[in-house]
């Protein structure tokens, strides 16, 4: 279970560029919740995920995951409980290292890294099966440097890495936004398959309202650093895009729905 209480974060406080990215945001996720997050540019979606991951400290509020207060933990310690996939395909992998080496790094998330071999023969076999499941032919290229892979292949690999050790919370930050539509679809479907198979608690940011409705069991909409709409279960299944736009306008007090929201 993830409990966020009264999270606040202001970037560049006290300057003309001061930007309140999180404004007393509170949110509770039950185990197994697959939550899609939508909202306009600058609504604080990515800030929320980065705050949970510990990329920067929050100004106030608390972050409790699975009973552990993570608010003051550094990023690399929180990583033990988290799986993350980023918007930029370059972000999630080490380009100069091989596919199997990247997976092996992920397999040791949250463990002490000692002087045992970095990749063992037994785990290579395991990775071969897992890579074959992705259906991208990567299982035959395990000693290829990740830098030579396409964006879609990298995102699929990052997804596999994020879920290799079952995380308490999976954070997907618009992880298909940089991909072409066909590849995006494939990565999204793979994400759903893994999330359902392992029953992962997931927060997924998307710009695509249709995806936000189609995936997950719960949808939240953010505006000005806080949650303005929270729809789950039956109600979510019956949502339509026009519904969502109407409710966004009502909730945010803005007449025109954000261009970005409409476009996708």
């Amino acid at each position: 279970m993830l409990e966020l209480k009264e999270l606040c974060k202001t970037f560049h406080p006290g300057t003309v560029n001061a930007k309140t990215a999180l404004n007393h945001l509170s949110l509770t996720l039950e185990d197994g919740d697959f939550v899609t997050v939508i909202g306009g540019n600058g609504a604080g979606k990515s800030t929320l995920l980065n705050a949970i991951a510990g990329v920067f400290p929050v100004d106030s509020g608390s972050i409790v995951l699975d009973g552990e207060d993570m608010t003051d933990l550094p990023e690399h310690k929180r990583a033990a409980l988290l799986g993350r996939v980023f918007q930029d395909p370059q972000m999630g992998t080490a380009p100069t290292m091989q596919i199997d080496e990247n997976l092996a790094l992920a397999a040791r998330r949250g463990q002490r890294r000692g002087l045992k071999w970095g990749v063992t023969r037994a785990e290579r076999e395991k990775y071969r099966t897992l890579l074959a499941d992705l259906g991208l032919g990567l299982e035959d290229r395990m000693s290829t440097k990740v830098g030579l892979l396409s964006g879609g292949q990298r995102q699929a690999l990052t997804l596999l890495m994020a879920t290799l050790k079952k995380p308490k919370l999976l954070l997907l930050d618009e992880h298909t936004a940089a991909l072409d539509p066909k590849t995006a679809m494939k990565v999204l479907e793979t994400s759903q398959r893994i999330v359902e198979r392992d029953g992962l608690t997931t927060l997924m940011i998307t710009h695509n309202m249709k995806d936000a409705i189609a995936y997950g069991n719960r949808l939240i909409m953010m505006d000005a650093g806080t949650v303005v709409l929270d729809v789950k279960g039956e109600e979510k299944q019956q949502l339509t895009v026009p519904d969502l736009i109407r409710r966004f306008s009502a909730a945010s007090g803005k007449d025109e729905a954000n261009d970005k929201l409409l476009l996708s």
Binding site: T93, R108, R109
Partner: peptide, 21 residues
Amino acid sequence: TERGCSLRATGANPNMARAQG
């Protein structure tokens, strides 16, 4: 080794390294 690999990852992509703990 595990430690050596983590050192290489640190240089190759520090963001990814931190995300992997």
